[in-house]
Simulated scan of single mutants.
Amino acid sequence: MPTTHTYFANALGAVLYVPDAYLTLRWTDQPLSSHEWRALYVHARNLLERAGLRGVLADHRAATAPPTAADQQWLLTRWLPDVATRTGLVRYAALPAPNPSHRLHTGPVVHDLRRFLTVGLFDDPAPAADWLRAA
C-alpha cells in the first residue's frame, strides 16, 4: 500500500492523502451521523482542491449502513457538481461494503456519479489504487 497521511478524521471515518496521487475516504464501523458523513466529504473536497488531486478511493468496506437518502442527494446534487467544477476530479474508485444493504454504490448512485466522472468498483484496494494512478 502507498504511504498515506491523515488529512482529517472523525468517528465515522478519515480522509487520507496519498501524495501526488489521490485521496482515500475510509469509513469506520460507527453508526452513521449525517453531520460527520458530510464533514468527511467537505474535507475531501478541500484536499482535492488544495493538492490538485484528480482521484478518490472510497473505502466503504467497514460501513455498517448506507447514507440516508438526503445525504445521497446532497452528495450527488451539491457536493459532486461543486467538486467536479472546482477540482477537475476525474476518477472515483469505490470499495463497496460487503453487505449489499450497506452499500452506497448501488446502480442508480453509480449512474449519477458517472454523469460527472469515471467510476470504478473494486473488491481490493491495490487494483483500485493502480487504476487511480493511471489517470
Rank of each mutant, 00 (worst) to 15 (best):
L104N: 05
R50C: 01
T77E: 09
D123A: 15
L76F: 11
A63K: 13
G13I: 11
D112G: 00
A51D: 09
Q73P: 01
F116I: 10
T28D: 00
A129P: 05
W27N: 03
A21P: 02
V110R: 12
L48E: 01
L57G: 09
D112M: 11
P19F: 02
D82L: 15
T118G: 03
A93V: 10
A14Q: 09
R103N: 13
A39G: 06
P108V: 00
L57S: 03
T85V: 10
L25Y: 13
V15L: 07
H60T: 13
E36R: 00
W131A: 06
L25E: 06
L117M: 15
H60D: 11
Q30E: 08
D123M: 14
L53I: 03
W74L: 06
G55N: 03
D71M: 11
R45W: 09
P125F: 15
H111A: 12
W27L: 10
D20Q: 09
T87H: 03
A84E: 08
D123L: 15
R91F: 03
R54T: 09
W37S: 00
P125W: 15
L16K: 11
A93F: 10
W37K: 00
R50H: 07
V119K: 12
L80I: 08
L89Y: 07
P100G: 08
H35A: 03
A62R: 12
E36V: 00
H111G: 03
D112P: 00
F116E: 07
P96L: 11
E49N: 00
T85R: 15
L117C: 15
P127S: 06
A93L: 05
L75K: 09
P125A: 06
D82T: 15
V15M: 02
G88T: 02
Y41W: 15
V56M: 04
S101D: 10
W79H: 14
L23F: 05
P100V: 12
L48Q: 07
L47Q: 07
L95E: 08
L80W: 12
L75T: 12
D123Q: 15
T64D: 02
Y41P: 00
Y17G: 02
A65M: 12
